[in-house]
Design a protein around this nucleic acid. Structure first.
Lengths: 229, 229
DNA sequence: TAGATTGTTAATCGATTAACAATC
DNA sequence: TAGATTGTTAATCGATTAACAATC
C-alpha cells in the first residue's frame, strides 16, 4: 500500500523544517478527532475498542474519507476491515499534537473575556489525564488588579512577563487585551519567549515567522452571519 | 470589462437560492473589510476619502488582489487609478451583510463564558452607528438565575424561548451551554424561529439546512497549537 | 469465503494568485 | 500623458472526494 511516499511522510513528521507542510486544516481536524475519541471512550465506559472512520467522522462533522486521508499524513493507524483501536489512535494523536506533557499558557488581559477564558480552559482541560494547556500566569496592566488572585493565580503587571514566562516555561500566550494594545503585548510576549499566540483582539497582529499565531475574532464570527439571514 | 458574467453575478445577489454560492470565506472577509474601513475612518477622523485595495488588505491580513476579487462578487465599487471611496464602500458592505438594521440575538446559557460574551458583544457593537447585533434576551436553565438581571436583561427560563424569540424578532441565537444540552437547546432555538446559531459548545450540532450554523470551538483553537510548539 | 473497512491514487472541485487590459 | 489602481481572465495551487485495490 505505501510506497516511497512513506519516506517523505516520515520526513514530514521528523524534520522540523518540513513539518510545516501539513496544513492547518488537517491539524485542526486532528484535534477534533482527539475530542471525538475521548468522548467515545467516556460514552462506552471503556478505553479499548475498535472504531471505524465513519464513526469518528460523524462525531467530528467531516466525511469518513477525510478522516482517513488526514490520518495518512502521519502514518497508518488502522486495520482494513476492522477500524482503529480507539486508545491507540488517541495516543497517536496526542503524540502528533505534542500533548504528551502539560503546556504552560499565560493570559494577558484579565478583563471580562479574559477571566471567562481562564475559567473555561481551566475547567475544560484540567479534567483530562493527558497533557493539557495549563494556565500558569495572568497579566494585566490595570494596577488595581495587581496583587489580586484569580483561580489561584496572582495577576501580575506586564513588566513581569519576560521573567515569569521564562521561569515557568510558558509556551503559549492568550491575548485578550483591547485592540490598541494588542500589538505591543504580542511583541512583549514574543520577546519573553512564547512560541505561539492565541489572539482574541480584533486586529491583525504582526509576529515573526517562527511564532505560531492564531486569531479568533468573535465579532466577525457573529457579524458575517448577517449575510445568511 | 464585465461580460455576460454580470448577469450571473446579479443573480447571485438577488436570488436567494443562488446567493448561497458565495463562499463563507468571502463573506467572512467582507466582515473583516468592514472593520478595517471603520477603523480607518476613526483613525483619519473623517468619513470620506479614497482608499486603495492595498490598504484594506494590510488592515485585514489578506492580499490586495484577494480584496478586489472578493468585492467583484458583489459589484464594482472602486475607480481604477483612484481606489475606493471609503464611506461608500463601507455602506455597500453593510448592505451586503444585511447590517442596515439591528439584528436581535438571544444568548442561551448565561454561565462564565455566556455572560462574558454578552458583555463583549454589547460593548463591541453598541458603539456602532449602523445596525448591529443587539442582545435582546438571555436564557438559562438554572432556576437560581431566574429573575436576576444582567446588562439590563432578565434571565429567562428556557420554556420562554419560543414566545420571547418570536415576540422580539430575534434571528440569531448564541449558544454557550454545556455540551450535553447543546443539541436540545439548538433544536429549541430552531423551533422558536431563529435563523442562525453561533455555537460555542464543543459538539457537532445537527440543524436543518435552512439554518445557518457557525461553531467556534475554543478548546480546539488552543489544542491544535500544540503541533506548532 | 464474503463483507467491511483501510490507505492511496487520481479526479474533481474550489480558492488564491499572477498577469494584464481598461480606466482614471 | 504617465503612474496608479481597478476588475477580470487564466493559471496555479491546494484541498476534498471518488474510486478501488489491499487487507482483515
Amino acid at each position: 500500500m505505501k510506497k516511497e511516499k512513506e519516506l517523505l511522510s516520515e520526513n514530514v513528521e521528523e524534520d522540523d523544517d518540513i513539518k510545516i507542510r501539513i496544513s492547518q486544516s488537517v491539524i485542526k481536524r486532528m484535534a477534533l478527532y482527539l475530542n471525538a475519541l475521548e468522548k467515545l471512550q467516556v460514552q462506552k465506559g471503556q478505553e479499548s475498542f475498535f472504531v471505524p472512520s465513519t464513526t469518528i467522522a460523524r462525531l467530528s462533522g467531516v466525511k469518513a474519507v477525510q478522516v482517513r486521508k488526514d490520518f495518512s499524513h502521519f502514518g497508518t493507524f488502522g486495520r482494513p476491515g476492522v477500524g482503529y483501536e480507539a486508545d491507540n489512535l488517541r495516543k497517536q494523536i496526542i503524540k502528533i499534537l505534542n500533548l504528551t506533557q502539560n503546556i504552560g499558557i499565560a493570559f494577558v488581559g484579565i478583563g471580562q473575556l479574559g477571566s471567562a477564558l481562564v475559567r473555561y480552559y481551566y475547567q475544560r482541560f484540567s479534567e483530562r489525564e493527558h497533557g493539557y494547556f495549563e494556565p500558569r500566569a495572568l497579566f494585566d496592566v490595570d494596577p488595581e488588579k495587581k496583587g489580586t488572585s484569580f483561580e489561584g493565580l496572582k495577576i501580575l503587571p506586564l513588566e513581569k512577563m519576560p521573567e515569569v514566562i521564562k521561569e515557568l516555561g510558558i509556551e503559549v500566550s492568550v491575548i485578550t487585551v483591547p485592540s490598541d494594545s494588542a500589538q505591543e503585548v504580542a511583541e512583549l510576549a514574543v520577546e519573553s519567549g512564547v512560541k505561539a499566540i492565541l489572539n482574541f483582539a480584533p486586529v491583525i497582529l504582526e509576529v515573526p515567522d517562527h511564532i505560531k499565531l492564531q486569531s479568533v475574532d468573535l465579532s466577525t464570527e457573529l457579524e458575517h452571519m448577517g449575510y445568511y439571514l
